[in-house]
């Protein structure tokens, strides 16, 4: 993200969105402890759960990408290395978010 003001806004808003989602996930982990494979699978095939899990992954990866960008800018001073590192982080974020969405969709349908 080039514009630093937008960057900050997105970082703050994504943080706001993740908080309730994380609470919900920790709550779900507590409720589901000791559950079998089938129970876990069924939990994921519930559209409500699937939607919020997908939202969690997308927003979390956005937040992660924005946060790591700041850290890389702080510590990697060589401009070429810097943009390469940020680019690879972005690509990794898209790939992993893609895997998460793909998995969730598989269980949903």
């Amino acid at each position: 993200m080039k514009n630093v003001v937008t960057h900050r806004k997105f970082q703050r808003y994504s943080a706001l969105a993740i908080s309730p989602l994380s609470i919900w996930i920790v709550y779900s982990i507590i409720c589901m402890k000791g559950s079998s494979f089938q129970e876990t699978y069924n939990w994921f095939s519930n559209p409500f759960n699937a939607f919020f899990m997908a939202a969690f992954f997308i927003i979390s990866f956005l937040h992660l990408k924005l946060g790591l960008q700041i850290i890389i800018e702080d510590y990697v001073h060589n401009l070429k290395h810097r943009s390469l590192t940020i680019l690879s982080i972005n690509i990794a974020c898209y790939i992993f978010a893609g895997i998460a969405i793909f998995s969730i969709l598989t269980m949903l349908f």
Binding site: V4, V5, H7, R8, E73, D74
Partner: peptide, 9 residues
């Protein structure tokens, strides 16, 4: 000041 480095570090 609206600059990623001048201010936002």
């Amino acid at each position: 000041l609206k600059d990623s480095f001048k201010l936002y570090r």
